[in-house]
Protein backbone atom coordinates (compact mmCIF):
# COMPACT_ATOMS: atom_id res chain seq x y z
CA UNK A 1 0.00 0.00 0.00
CA UNK A 2 1.38 3.43 -0.83
CA UNK A 3 2.50 5.46 2.17
CA UNK A 4 -0.03 8.15 1.38
CA UNK A 5 -2.91 5.72 1.81
CA UNK A 6 -1.79 4.13 5.06
CA UNK A 7 -4.06 4.76 8.06
CA UNK A 8 -2.87 7.21 10.72
CA UNK A 9 -2.24 4.50 13.29
CA UNK A 10 0.20 2.70 11.00
CA UNK A 11 1.98 5.92 10.09
CA UNK A 12 2.32 6.78 13.78
CA UNK A 13 3.82 3.34 14.41
CA UNK A 14 6.19 3.77 11.46
CA UNK A 15 7.25 7.14 12.78
CA UNK A 16 7.90 5.75 16.26
CA UNK A 17 10.00 3.06 14.59
CA UNK A 18 12.14 5.71 12.96
CA UNK A 19 10.50 6.49 9.64
CA UNK A 20 10.68 10.30 9.52
CA UNK A 21 8.78 10.37 6.25
CA UNK A 22 5.66 9.12 8.08
CA UNK A 23 5.47 12.39 10.00
CA UNK A 24 5.61 14.38 6.77
CA UNK A 25 2.67 12.35 5.47
CA UNK A 26 0.69 12.88 8.69
CA UNK A 27 1.33 16.63 8.62
CA UNK A 28 0.46 16.84 4.96
CA UNK A 29 -2.74 14.90 5.54
CA UNK A 30 -4.02 16.90 8.53
CA UNK A 31 -2.35 20.32 8.29
CA UNK A 32 -5.36 22.01 6.75
CA UNK A 33 -7.80 20.83 9.44
CA UNK A 34 -5.43 21.56 12.33
CA UNK A 35 -4.26 24.93 11.00
CA UNK A 36 -7.82 25.94 10.06
CA UNK A 37 -9.02 25.03 13.53
CA UNK A 38 -6.27 27.11 15.17
CA UNK A 39 -6.83 30.07 12.84
CA UNK A 40 -10.60 29.99 13.47
CA UNK A 41 -9.86 30.64 17.16
CA UNK A 42 -6.94 33.07 17.12
CA UNK A 43 -7.58 34.87 13.78
CA UNK A 44 -3.92 35.65 13.24
CA UNK A 45 -1.69 33.91 10.72
CA UNK A 46 1.55 34.33 12.64
CA UNK A 47 0.11 33.21 15.97
CA UNK A 48 -1.55 30.28 14.19
CA UNK A 49 1.80 29.24 12.74
CA UNK A 50 3.39 29.43 16.19
CA UNK A 51 0.66 27.30 17.76
CA UNK A 52 0.78 24.84 14.85
CA UNK A 53 4.52 24.49 15.34
CA UNK A 54 4.24 24.07 19.13
CA UNK A 55 1.50 21.51 18.66
CA UNK A 56 3.69 19.32 16.49
CA UNK A 57 6.69 19.78 18.75
CA UNK A 58 4.54 18.28 21.52
CA UNK A 59 3.39 15.53 19.18
CA UNK A 60 6.99 14.70 18.23
CA UNK A 61 8.19 14.67 21.84
CA UNK A 62 5.31 12.45 22.94
CA UNK A 63 5.78 10.00 20.08
CA UNK A 64 9.56 9.85 20.39
CA UNK A 65 9.40 9.26 24.14
CA UNK A 66 6.96 6.38 23.57
CA UNK A 67 4.32 8.09 25.73
CA UNK A 68 1.62 7.91 23.07
CA UNK A 69 -1.07 5.31 23.43
CA UNK A 70 -3.40 4.65 20.60
CA UNK A 71 -6.57 4.89 22.68
CA UNK A 72 -8.15 7.56 20.62
CA UNK A 73 -7.40 8.59 17.09
CA UNK A 74 -4.39 10.58 15.99
CA UNK A 75 -6.21 13.65 14.66
CA UNK A 76 -8.50 14.23 17.70
CA UNK A 77 -5.45 13.85 19.93
CA UNK A 78 -3.50 16.48 17.95
CA UNK A 79 -6.56 18.75 17.93
CA UNK A 80 -6.77 18.47 21.71
CA UNK A 81 -3.11 19.51 22.03
CA UNK A 82 -3.76 22.45 19.69
CA UNK A 83 -6.87 23.40 21.68
CA UNK A 84 -4.91 23.42 24.95
CA UNK A 85 -2.18 25.56 23.39
CA UNK A 86 -4.78 28.01 22.08
CA UNK A 87 -6.16 28.36 25.62
CA UNK A 88 -2.61 28.93 26.91
CA UNK A 89 -2.12 31.65 24.29
CA UNK A 90 -5.32 33.43 25.32
CA UNK A 91 -4.28 33.23 28.96
CA UNK A 92 -0.88 34.74 28.14
CA UNK A 93 -2.51 37.48 26.05
CA UNK A 94 -4.81 38.34 28.93
CA UNK A 95 -1.88 38.72 31.29
CA UNK A 96 0.17 40.71 28.79
CA UNK A 97 -1.90 42.18 25.94
CA UNK A 98 -0.15 42.40 22.58
CA UNK A 99 -0.26 45.32 20.19
CA UNK A 100 0.55 44.75 16.58
CA UNK A 101 1.32 47.18 13.80
CA UNK A 102 -1.40 47.67 11.23
CA UNK A 103 -2.21 50.23 8.52
CA UNK A 104 -4.28 52.25 11.00
CA UNK A 105 -2.11 51.87 14.04
CA UNK A 106 1.60 51.96 14.59
CA UNK A 107 2.98 50.83 17.91
CA UNK A 108 5.60 53.57 17.63
CA UNK A 109 2.89 56.21 17.86
CA UNK A 110 2.59 55.40 21.57
CA UNK A 111 6.01 53.94 22.14
CA UNK A 112 8.87 56.36 21.79
CA UNK A 113 12.52 56.31 22.67
CA UNK A 114 13.51 59.82 23.64
CA UNK A 115 17.08 58.97 24.53
CA UNK A 116 19.62 60.62 22.23
CA UNK A 117 21.18 58.59 19.47
CA UNK A 118 24.93 57.89 19.28
CA UNK A 119 25.58 61.01 17.18
CA UNK A 120 23.65 63.14 19.67
CA UNK A 121 25.60 61.66 22.56
CA UNK A 122 28.96 62.36 20.88
CA UNK A 123 27.94 65.95 20.09
CA UNK A 124 26.80 66.48 23.70
CA UNK A 125 30.10 65.12 25.01
CA UNK A 126 32.06 67.43 22.68
CA UNK A 127 29.98 70.47 23.64
CA UNK A 128 30.46 69.71 27.33
CA UNK A 129 34.21 69.23 26.89
CA UNK A 130 34.48 72.54 24.96
CA UNK A 131 32.44 74.29 27.61
CA UNK A 132 34.75 73.01 30.35
CA UNK A 133 37.73 74.48 28.48
CA UNK A 134 35.95 77.84 28.25
CA UNK A 135 35.04 77.77 31.95
CA UNK A 136 38.73 77.27 32.77
CA UNK A 137 39.42 80.58 31.02
CA UNK A 138 37.24 82.48 33.55
CA UNK A 139 38.70 84.31 36.56
CA UNK A 140 38.88 81.99 39.62
CA UNK A 141 36.14 83.67 41.67
CA UNK A 142 33.65 83.47 38.78
CA UNK A 143 34.70 79.96 37.87
CA UNK A 144 34.20 78.75 41.48
CA UNK A 145 30.67 80.17 41.68
CA UNK A 146 29.70 78.76 38.31
CA UNK A 147 31.04 75.30 39.11
CA UNK A 148 29.35 75.21 42.51
CA UNK A 149 26.05 76.35 41.04
CA UNK A 150 25.95 74.28 37.85
CA UNK A 151 28.02 71.19 38.57
CA UNK A 152 27.53 70.79 42.33
CA UNK A 153 23.97 72.15 42.32
CA UNK A 154 24.50 74.34 45.38
CA UNK A 155 22.14 77.21 46.20
CA UNK A 156 23.45 80.79 46.11
CA UNK A 157 23.10 80.89 49.91
CA UNK A 158 25.36 77.84 50.23
CA UNK A 159 27.82 79.31 47.71
CA UNK A 160 27.86 82.58 49.62
CA UNK A 161 28.56 80.74 52.90
CA UNK A 162 31.31 78.57 51.36
CA UNK A 163 33.11 81.43 49.62
CA UNK A 164 32.59 83.89 52.49
CA UNK A 165 30.80 86.55 50.43
CA UNK A 166 27.26 87.92 50.39
CA UNK A 167 24.53 86.31 48.29
CA UNK A 168 24.45 89.39 46.04
CA UNK A 169 28.17 89.06 45.36
CA UNK A 170 27.76 85.37 44.53
CA UNK A 171 24.86 86.27 42.20
CA UNK A 172 26.97 89.00 40.60
CA UNK A 173 29.90 86.62 40.02
CA UNK A 174 27.57 84.11 38.42
CA UNK A 175 26.18 86.81 36.14
CA UNK A 176 29.67 87.95 35.12
CA UNK A 177 30.72 84.33 34.58
CA UNK A 178 27.86 83.81 32.13
CA UNK A 179 28.47 87.15 30.38
CA UNK A 180 32.17 86.42 30.05
CA UNK A 181 31.48 82.97 28.68
CA UNK A 182 29.18 84.49 26.05
CA UNK A 183 31.84 87.04 25.18
CA UNK A 184 34.53 84.37 24.75
CA UNK A 185 32.16 82.32 22.60
CA UNK A 186 31.24 85.28 20.38
CA UNK A 187 34.79 86.53 20.14
CA UNK A 188 36.15 83.16 19.04
CA UNK A 189 33.09 82.34 16.98
CA UNK A 190 32.66 79.03 18.77
CA UNK A 191 29.59 77.02 17.85
CA UNK A 192 28.08 75.21 20.80
CA UNK A 193 25.00 73.47 19.58
CA UNK A 194 23.46 70.11 20.24
Amino acid sequence: MATNQLPDALLVRDYINGNENALAVLINRHQSKIYGFIYSKVLDRDVSDDIFQDTFIKVIKTLKSNSYNEEGKFLPWVMRIAHNLIIDTFRKDKKMPKYRDSDDFSIFSILMDNSPNIEGQIITEQVEADLLKLINELPDDQKDVLEMRIYQDLSFKEIADLTGVSINTALGRMRYAVLNLRRIIEKNQIVLTN
Binding site: I27, Q31, S32, Y35, S48, D49, Q53, I57, I60
Partner: peptide
Amino acid sequence: KMLPKQETVDFIL
Protein backbone atom coordinates in the same frame (compact mmCIF):
# COMPACT_ATOMS: atom_id res chain seq x y z
CA LYS B 1 -7.67 25.96 2.36
CA MET B 2 -5.82 27.35 5.34
CA LEU B 3 -2.32 26.00 5.42
CA PRO B 4 0.67 26.74 7.62
CA LYS B 5 3.73 28.38 6.10
CA GLN B 6 6.09 25.99 4.36
CA GLU B 7 8.91 27.15 6.63
CA THR B 8 6.85 26.14 9.68
CA VAL B 9 6.35 22.65 8.29
CA ASP B 10 10.03 22.44 7.31
CA PHE B 11 11.03 23.49 10.81
CA ILE B 12 8.86 20.77 12.36
CA LEU B 13 10.29 18.08 10.06
